[in-house]
Design a protein around this nucleic acid. Structure first.
Lengths: 171, 171
DNA sequence: TAAAGCATGTAAGAGGTTACATGATTGG
DNA sequence: CCAATCATGTAACCTCTTACATGCTTTA
């Protein structure tokens, strides 16, 4: 997961560790610690996905190798996990521009299916619990929120998918 | 976090491990694995927060001790973390009914502040990125969604807080 | 009586965090 | 020149997951 994020960010431009941490935080979904970031950079370098070079001062600037680029492409295509988890999908989406246009829509629709399934489960629990008065108002509120949040996410995805389609046909 | 969830669920009624896993899943925010659940039960028993007894068949049914009840109360009051993380707050909310009524509103407002702060950050990144055209449409969509989702969460919390207030005054 | 589901448990390891240690660079 | 911030790195540990092993209980 962290490897994926690092490769994705480096595909754009070379960066050093400190900068990667900041960029990751600005993307909005990760305040990764140095204690996991630096070892990850080492690991990726040993694998040959990135190469680091000491630049001005103490900085060690990393750039993506062709192997790293291939590894990133593989992560983007492969539905290994990524789709199930929240953060995994968000990362895939952040780098979706690096995936072939005709494959992008599949990622979005995969996520949509997962959300639709989750929505059904969430609705069932909510309606069931409301009917049998099993839960207090706080847990009911939690379940209701879950239903609404998932609905909103599906609608958002539908927008993205529609945009993707009109892009594909229109151009 | 897991300990908190276990204590909260056991406060209602005694349960065995398998049942705890199901209940946790039905609450909507955790598909905990047995590999972490059973060791956690052991740990809590050693601490004296719960006691387990072999019942019919192979089941080992756990119930909360007075010490466990006190530990749960402490977790509910203490803003140790819980408020910052998504799941932490959701757990607190699920068990908020076990907290003194006059303290509940403080938990809700603590979460609200955190969300408001997050919203400001999210808005700033979004507007900044949109202005400078730094990001592609996918990352922009991600940021915009984040803003909307946070706004919706704040509105939802406001409802909960309003309900809490009318409950406090009205009764 | 076999299969499906209930139920508990352990070992290994993935993937992260916190705390600590170090030193360079920049700005007041 | 001193403080703040930039920058890298290590060690210890925590929490949870996966994979595996075991055996009971219900039901078709």
């Amino acid at each position: 997961m962290l490897d994926f994020a690092i490769l994705g960010l480096l595909r754009e431009q070379p960066r050093h560790g400190y900068e990667l941490k900041r960029a990751l935080g600005e993307l909005g979904f990760w305040q990764v610690s140095f204690g996991s970031l630096y070892p990850a950079l080492r690991r990726l370098e040993k694998q040959g996905s990135i190469v680091g070079a000491r630049g001005n001062g103490r900085r060690r600037s990393y750039r993506l190798t062709p192997e790293g680029r291939a590894a990133l492409a593989h992560m983007l295509e492969d539905p290994h996990d990524g789709e199930g988890s929240e953060r995994g999908f968000q990362l895939r989406l952040a780098f979706l521009g690096y995936l072939e246009p005709d494959l992008r829509i599949r990622v979005l629709e995969g996520r949509r299916s997962a959300l639709v399934e989750g929505l059904l489960t969430a609705r069932r629990s909510f309606l069931g619990a409301r009917g049998s008065r099993t839960l207090d108002r706080y847990r009911l509120a939690l379940m209701e929120r879950r239903v609404h949040a998932t609905e909103a996410d599906i609608a958002w995805l539908d927008d993205l998918i529609a945009g993707e389609r009109s892009n594909a046909t229109g151009t």
